[in-house]
Amino acid sequence: MIVIGEKISIIAKKVREAMTNRDPKPIQEIASAQWKAGAHMIDVNIGPAEEKGEDLMTWMVNIIQEVVPLPLCLDTTNSNALEAGLKAHNNQWGRALINSTSNEPERFVMLELAARHNAQVIGLTLGKGGLPADAEERAAIASEIMARAMEYGLPLEDLFLDPLILQVCTMQSHAMHAIKAVRMFQELNDPPMKTVVGLSNISNGAPKDMRSLIDRTFLTLLMHEGLTAAIMNPLDKDLMAVMKTTDIFLGKTLYAHSYLEM
């Protein structure tokens, strides 16, 4: 499974301060730690970045790829900042992933950017009508995003569908809707559509010491349904161990006694 490291986010105080002060060190340390822990891609969440977004994203991409040989998942609603990030991205380590488009008209520009810059893109199954009620509604939105992607000339294999994970503590039934949606998304195309989740949303609002347990249990169920990638915390050792063990059960990795160390 593809692990997208979630730790470089404007929500974290340390990261936010480093961004404001243009201090590369804390950000590079977090990027490097995630890479060493087994992340395949690093999420770079700079938020809405309304002021100097382009400068900020370019700077982030450059300083991160200076220290880790990984592709980045560029996470902002500011399309100018996003395009600047795509231009700065070093494709030697793999193609960038845009986080994200959806079925909201103001987000269509992300599909255009993905097609123009040979990037991949996450399609969040969120439409004009607010939160999707169930798996079927998520699949219907996914179909619309796929049709839109084709209009923009984006190959469907470059689109990762995201069922929108909601917190279990207040919206319990959506956990199962999202799991079912992961299965349904794959059936929308042949070869199957790729899928991705923002995993830690599931445990948002739960007591801190229970979050890892909730995340990793949910991840196992999603992986069983064929999940391709997750934006998650690679520094959570228990979570990574569960992911590797699930990959063993699913036959994605060959078993050896030391598989956790690989």
């Binding site: 060959l254 078993y255 050896a256 006694h257 030391s258 160390e261 690989m262």
Partner: peptide
Amino acid sequence: DINLAKQLNILITQ
């Protein structure tokens, strides 16, 4: 034994 083959390779590379 494929799993032991992998394990030995891991131990050696470690």
